[in-house]
């Protein structure tokens, strides 16, 4: 019996350690990014970061073109992935017949599981040449191409989170609306969607968050020119994102060099962006997860 008790205590504490590991990892990620990234702030004067040129060989570390590149690609992705994602979620959750649901949900899951290199690969071989011809551009490697594919990658996140939120709306809401004579169409827009508002918002944030952090695809299809995007036409020109910069250059820098530390600094920026997005998403979505079922009585 003593041994059994000891085993129980051991297992319980092991499980507890596992539980807290997530906090430990987030902490460690932050610490190591700071450790490797903060020297950049000492070695590089601040105004250097604020210029419009990223040219590390000449010690020009202007982050603005990279941030601008990330922004324009993400924004482009958001513009069509948000409506498409929400509409698909509504269709799957509220309109689709059962058999269609059974096909659509796994299909969306497949899209979510497609490796980003694979989409980049398709982008290079199919979308890039097609775009160049269709729009008569000097190159198909543009922010628009990146936005198109990134949008596709954000969709599965948006669909699945939004669909969960719609599913969570109590049946009684819908029944009440239908009983009052509303059509299903009206019920969807006037009752169900508003009731699932916070969940849908979370879906959008997580989807957009995924787009900002995406690396391989954008590196492969956006042309990687570190110029600050200005004007409307910029969407059809090559850009370079923060993520792609790290991925492309980290392999070639000497560990401990200024360039190396600056790349980590970009990592810190990305980390902070995702932290913000997810903290907001978390605070919206946080519902009490209490077990509703009482002890059998």
């Amino acid at each position: 019996m003593k041994a059994g008790k000891f085993k129980d205590i051991l297992i319980t504490s092991l499980i507890k350690v596992c539980g807290y590991s997530a906090i430990i990892f987030v902490g460690m990620i932050f610490v190591f990014l700071i450790k490797e990234g903060s020297p950049a702030l000492i070695r590089v004067p601040l105004e250097n970061f604020l210029q419009l040129r990223w040219y590390p060989i000449e010690d020009r570390f202007g982050l603005l073109p990279l941030i601008g590149g990330s922004l324009i690609v993400t924004l482009g992705a958001a513009i069509f992935s948000i409506p498409l994602g929400i509409v698909s979620a509504v269709y799957i959750a509220e309109v689709a017949p059962r058999w269609a649901r059974e096909i659509l949900k796994p299909l969306v899951e497949v899209l979510g599981g497609l490796p980003s290199v694979m989409l980049g690969f398709i982008g290079i071989l199919v979308i890039v040449p097609a775009l160049r011809q269709a729009l008569n551009l000097p190159t198909g490697l543009t922010a628009f191409t990146g936005a198109l594919i990134l949008g596709g990658m954000a969709i599965p996140t948006i669909v699945s989170v939004a669909e969960d939120a719609l599913d969570a709306v109590p049946k009684t809401y819908r029944e009440a609306a239908l009983a009052m004579g509303a059509t299903r169409w009206q019920t969807i827009w006037k009752v169900t969607l508003p009731a699932a508002k916070s969940g849908v918002l979370t879906a959008v944030m997580l989807g957009v968050g995924r787009a900002i952090g995406e690396t391989m695809t954008v590196m492969m299809v956006t042309g990687n020119a570190a110029v600050f995007p200005t004007g409307f036409g910029a969407i059809f020109k090559p850009v370079r994102t923060m993520t792609a910069t790290i991925a492309a250059e980290m392999g070639e820098v000497a560990s401990g060099s200024t360039h190396y530390h600056v790349l980590f600094l970009i990592g810190i920026i990305l980390f902070l962006i995702s932290l913000t997005v997810n903290l907001i998403a978390a605070s919206v979505v946080f519902r009490q997860r209490k077990r509703t079922e009482r002890i059998l009585s």
Binding site: L206, G213, L279
Partner: peptide, 9 residues
């Protein structure tokens, strides 16, 4: 947050 951190990070 872990779920949202970019893979390159």
């Amino acid at each position: 947050n872990l779920a949202g951190i970019p893979s390159i990070v």
